[in-house]
């Protein structure tokens, strides 16, 4: 564990130096802070606007922060040849990959936590000094959604270049979010459409399940047991990430650097 921790710590240190990540964080916080402005323009739905804009901003900024942080973690090590000085030491490749993943993910966690704190603080002051636990749950689900995305991005980074990885990861995230399309395809009479729907449903990660903004914002679309739903999604994120990382480790173990 000491080796994984050392690599993760080093990765956080390097990742936090990347200006692009800070730019996305500033954009995220800026969008969250626009909530009260838009709420003012729409007094009837000010609470809904504030909540939906806040969660969407965290999701969007989190998405870009996760991808730009994780796509470079391994390629930069190879390009700068720093990987030679690490893997020539008594470091197993799985330790290197897990260290990189944990470091990348902790960086994403710091960012989402920062945006989440700003968002919840804004709600606290806008909604009469009342803490909104359902919004905190929304931020937490975004956090686990990004954990899954980080694992997928790390997986792609073991087999492809950062540019291709960006589009692949972004694409998987988009398709995984189109749950309405997946539902339509799986119920389609057309065999091909049905097959595609089944593939997306069973193979690609169901990112859409983590987006509970609508259900949180509109209480009429309530989930019977919210806690069970959240636990189920957290478990899904952890299990899916573990499988993806296991495959990434197998591929990276055979990769020449």
């Amino acid at each position: 564990m000491g080796v994984i921790y050392a690599i993760a710590r080093q990765t956080v240190r390097e990742a936090l130096r990347r200006k692009i990540m800070w730019i996305f964080l500033v954009i995220g916080v800026f969008l969250i802070s626009l909530g009260p402005v838009f709420g003012f323009l729409s007094p009837k739905d000010s609470q809904t606007v504030l909540r939906s804009l806040g969660l969407a901003a965290i999701l969007l900024a989190g998405l870009f922060i996760t991808i730009v942080t994780c796509i470079y973690l391994i390629p930069v090590e190879i390009e700068r040849r720093t990987i030679y000085t690490v893997l020539s030491k008594p470091v197993q490749r799985y330790e290197f990959l897990l260290g990189k993943f944990l470091g990348g993910f902790f960086t994403v966690f710091i960012n989402i936590a920062a945006m989440g704190i700003v968002f919840l603080a804004m709600l606290y002051f806008q909604e009469g000094h009342h803490i909104a636990p359902e919004m905190a749950r929304g931020v937490m689900l975004t956090f686990f959604q990004m954990l899954l995305l980080a694992a997928i991005t790390i997986f792609f980074s073991t087999i492809t270049t950062p540019v291709v990885n960006f589009f692949l990861s972004f694409g998987v995230f988009l398709v995984g979010n189109l749950s309405s399309v997946t539902d339509t395809l799986t119920t389609s009479q057309n065999k091909i459409a049905h097959g595609v729907g089944q593939f997306i449903y069973y193979i690609l990660p169901q990112f859409g399940n983590f987006n509970v903004q609508n259900r949180l914002i509109h209480p009429e679309e309530s989930i019977v047991n919210m806690n069970a739903y959240i636990v189920q999604n957290i478990f899904y994120s952890l299990a899916y990430s573990a499988v993806v990382l296991a495959v990434a480790i197998i591929l990276f173990d055979r990769r020449e650097v």
Binding site: R13, E14, R81, T82, Y84, T85, K89, P90
Partner: peptide, 18 residues
């Protein structure tokens, strides 16, 4: 075990310069 007893300096290495 061998790796713990050897070391390597690659050509033109960029270290973690932060």
């Amino acid at each position: 075990v061998v790796k713990s007893m050897i070391s390597y300096l690659p050509e033109e290495t960029y270290f973690y310069d932060s």
